[in-house]
Design a protein around this nucleic acid. Sequence first.
DNA 1: TTCACTCCATCTCCAAAACATATCGAATTC
DNA 2: GAATTCGATATGTTTTGGAGATGGAGTGAA
Lengths: 305, 305
Amino acid sequence: MELRHIRYFLAVAEELNFTRAAARMGIGQPPLSQQIKDLENEVGVKLFHRIPQGAELTEAGQAFLEKVKGVPDLVQDAVQSAQRAGRGETGTLNLGMTGTAALQPYFTDAIRRFRRSFPDVELTLEEANSVGLINGLMDGRLDVAILRPNATDPEELQKYQLLEEPLVIALPEAWASSDSSMALVTLRDAPLVLTPRKVGITLHDEALRACRDAGFEPVIGQSAPQIASIMSMVAAELGFSLVPASMQQLQVQGVVFRAISGEAPLIGLTLAHRRIGASRITLNFVQLLRQLAPTYASQVEPLEK
Amino acid sequence: MELRHIRYFLAVAEELNFTRAAARMGIGQPPLSQQIKDLENEVGVKLFHRIPQGAELTEAGQAFLEKVKGVPDLVQDAVQSAQRAGRGETGTLNLGMTGTAALQPYFTDAIRRFRRSFPDVELTLEEANSVGLINGLMDGRLDVAILRPNATDPEELQKYQLLEEPLVIALPEAWASSDSSMALVTLRDAPLVLTPRKVGITLHDEALRACRDAGFEPVIGQSAPQIASIMSMVAAELGFSLVPASMQQLQVQGVVFRAISGEAPLIGLTLAHRRIGASRITLNFVQLLRQLAPTYASQVEPLEK
DNA sequence: TTCACTCCATCTCCAAAACATATCGAATTC
DNA sequence: GAATTCGATATGTTTTGGAGATGGAGTGAA
C-alpha cells in the first residue's frame, strides 16, 4: 500500500462519488477505480458499496477511514518538522560560557533575543572554565561556547571575537581615592588576587601582563576559582584584582572599581564552535550574536567618565 | 511522497547503512539511494549525513523520524480494523425485540454468547411492539429483531423461526385447581386479559383462536400494553390470560400457570432482518442464534410434567 | 416503454518511474 | 599501498500509474 491509495480512498470517502473524487485528485475516473480496487484487494475487504448514485462506505470502509484519516496530515506535519529542524528552528543548543560572561548585559540580551527568535529551540546553559569549555566543544557535549580567547585553543574550533572590554582595577574601598582612574603601579606592593591560571588562562595572563607593562612584578595573593569569591577577597582587603569592566555589575559591599590610567589592557570575549559538524541552530546562534555585538561595542569603552 | 519513501527512510534510519537497509527492503542499494534522495528533495532538507561508515541522521532527519516512525504501524492497524469490521467483529448491532422475548432463557443465553464471541461489537437493545420492530427494521434503525411472526410482515424481511413454544394459561391462584393442566373451555365465562391487538397482533390473534378452537368466544377483558401489566391484572383476579410458556419465568404473586390440556396452540419466536443491506455483524448474529435454537427446542415442550 | 443520463468497471496503450546491473570515487583499514 | 567498505552515478529493463475509449447497470423523464 502507498500513500496514494490512502489519499484516493479519503477523496472517495469524502465525495462519495468516484468521478468527482478523481477530478479532485487530478486524475481520471478509471485509474481511481483501479487504485481503489487494488487497495480493496490488499486489505481483503470491500471498502465501498458501489451504488447507482455513486458510492458509500462499507462498515470496513468506515473503520478504515477512522484510522487513516489523519495520515496525510501526520505526514505533512513530519515534513514541516523536518524543515523547521533543517532551518535550525527546533532542536537543542548546548551553550557553555565562562563565568565572567554571565554578567555581560550583551550576553543576557543575546540569550533573550535568541529565545524569542527561536522559541522552540531547547537551550541548555552551562558554566565552566576555559578548559572545560574547550573540551566540551571538542567532544560534542557543547555546541557553542562563550569564552576568553587563548592562543592555544585548537585549530578545529572556529572563533569569533564578539567584543573587547578593558580590564579595570577592583580594590577595597578603603584603599581607593576619589579619582575615577588610577595608575596600576600605585598598587605594586599590594597582593593581586586572581583565579588560578588553569581555570582561566587568559584573564590570569592578561592581569599579570598588565602589571608587568606597568613596570612591576605583582605580588600574587590568594586565588579562588569563582569571580564572586575574588570579589569577596577584595572586599576583605586581601588584595586587589584586575577584572573585565563588565564585572562592575557585581555590586559588592566594600569593593570599588577604578579604571587603569593610561592605555588600559583589553580582554576579549569570543564565541567558539566546531568548524565541522556545527548544527544549523549553532550557526543561527552565532549569526545572532555577531550581529548584536557592534551594538554593545560602545559600552565597553574605558571607564573614564 | 509515498509510504515507500517512509519505509525506506525508516530502514536507513534504523540500519544507519544504505546497503544493509536496501537488503532488508529487498531492493538494491542504488534504488534505495535514489529514493532517499527523492525524499530529501521533496522535504527540502538533507535527512542523512553520508559518512564513510554509512549514514547518520541529521537534525532534520531526527525530527522527521520522530514524526513518521509510527506511520507504518498506523496503516497496518487501519488494515486490521477494516478486516475485523469486514468480518463483523466490530461495529454496532441494533437489536430490537418483542417484550415477551426478554424472558426467554434462550434469548438471554444467545445475547451472552454473542457478546463473548464478538466483544467489540457495540450492541444496543431496544424493546418495542411488533409494528415498531418492523418499522425499525425497514427504516434501518434496527439491524435485526426478535419478534412473534405474522403473515403480514413485509416481503423485504428475511425471517427465521427460532423456536416454538406453547401458550399456557395464566390465571389467578384462587381459580386454579391442583392439576397441572386444564381445559380452556372451563374458563369460557371468565374475562380474557390480553395486550391490545395493535401492539401484538400475533399473540392477540393466537389467544383468540385458541379459545375459538376450544369452542367458545372469549369475553375480552381489560387490556394492557406490557406483559407485566397483564400479569398484575390476572393477579388482581380481573381475568385470565394466554401467554407464551416462557412467561412462567415471571413469578407474580397470586398468578399460577396451567398447561392447556389437549393440543396446545404453539406460538413461534422468529428473527428478522432486511434481505438486502444486512451487515456482516447481523449475519454473524443470525448464524449464532440459529445454531443455538435447537439446543433449546426441548425446553419449549408443553408443560405436561 | 423508451431514451437520455449518470456512474462505475473494463480494456488497451503509453509514459513515468522503480528497480537491477555495472561502475566509480572517496574514505578506511590492514 | 592494496584491499575493503560504502554511497553516488550511469544506463538499461520492467513495472505500473494514468489516459482515453468503451461497456453495462441503474435512474429519471418524456
